Amino acid sequence: ETFPLDVLVNTAAEDLPRGVDPSRKENFLSDEDFKAVFGMTRSAFANLPLWKQQNLKKEKGLF
């Protein structure tokens, strides 16, 4: 299941849709939104070091 970017960005855990893991908001973006937000594919993002993934998520309001 995916959700629009505005539902996930800068949203407190208690305000997220049911079933969304607040530590993994990026997994609930569509592939198109994911690429638009991070400028890379999911596989490229997954290959980044964890610290870099976290920094990007913070920068984009998805942490």
Rank of each mutant, 00 (worst) to 15 (best):
D6F: 08
F63Q: 14
E1V: 15
G19S: 11
V9Q: 15
V37K: 01
S30Q: 02
K58E: 11
L50P: 11
L8V: 04
Q53P: 00
D15A: 10
M40P: 00
L62E: 02
F45P: 00
E14F: 01
M40Y: 05
G39V: 02
S43Y: 13
R24H: 15
V20A: 05
N27L: 13
E1L: 15
G61L: 06
V7S: 09
A36E: 12
R42M: 04
P49F: 01
R42C: 02
F45C: 00
T2W: 13
A12E: 09
D33R: 01
F34Y: 02
K52G: 05
D31R: 02
F45Q: 00
N10T: 10
F38D: 00
D33I: 06
V37W: 02
V9D: 04
E26H: 03
F34C: 01
E26W: 02
L8R: 03
F3C: 07
V20E: 05
L62K: 02
F34I: 01
S30I: 02
T41F: 04
A46F: 12
F63S: 15
S30E: 02
P4T: 08
A12G: 09
G61F: 05
K60E: 02
P17M: 04
F28N: 07
P17Q: 02
E26G: 02
D15R: 09
D6S: 14
G61P: 02
E1S: 13
M40R: 01
L29S: 01
T11I: 11
N47Q: 14
K58T: 08
A46Q: 12
N47L: 13
T2A: 07
L8M: 05
L48E: 02
G39L: 09
Q54L: 13
T11P: 06
V7D: 07
A44E: 14
N47E: 13
S23R: 11
V37M: 06
N10K: 08
T11Y: 07
S30Y: 02
D31F: 03
L48D: 00
V7A: 09
Q53R: 09
D33S: 05
A36L: 13
D15W: 07
E14K: 15
D31Q: 06
T41Y: 03
F3A: 03
F45K: 00
V9H: 05
K60F: 07
P22I: 08
Q53D: 00
F34K: 00
P22A: 11
R42P: 05
A13E: 14
G61Y: 03
L5E: 02
S30C: 06
R24Q: 11
D6E: 14
F34E: 00
S30F: 01
R42Y: 05
Q54S: 10
D33G: 03
F34N: 00
F28T: 03
L62T: 01
K52Q: 14
T41H: 07
K57A: 05
A36S: 13
T2Y: 15
K35M: 15
T41L: 08
R24S: 09
E32H: 11
E32S: 10
T41C: 08
E32D: 13
G61Q: 03
F3K: 04
V20Q: 05
E59L: 12
T2C: 10
K52D: 12
V37T: 10
A36C: 11
K35T: 13
N10E: 07
F34P: 00
V7I: 12
K25T: 10
K60N: 11
F34D: 00
D15Y: 08
R18H: 15
P49H: 02
F38V: 01
K58M: 11
M40G: 00
A46V: 10
G39M: 09
A13W: 12
K35R: 13
N47C: 15
L8F: 02
E32K: 10
W51L: 09
Q54V: 15
D21K: 04
L16A: 04
K52L: 13
F38M: 07
V20Y: 05
V20K: 04
F38N: 00
T41S: 13
P17D: 05
D31S: 05
F38K: 00
S30T: 13
L29V: 03
L8N: 04
D6Q: 10
L16K: 03
L5M: 09
Q53M: 02
A44I: 10
S43A: 14
Q54K: 11
L29H: 01
F34M: 01
P49T: 05
K60Y: 08
A44N: 09
E26T: 03
E59Y: 06
S23L: 15
A44R: 09
S23Q: 14
S23W: 13
E59W: 07
E59T: 08
T11D: 06
D31Y: 03
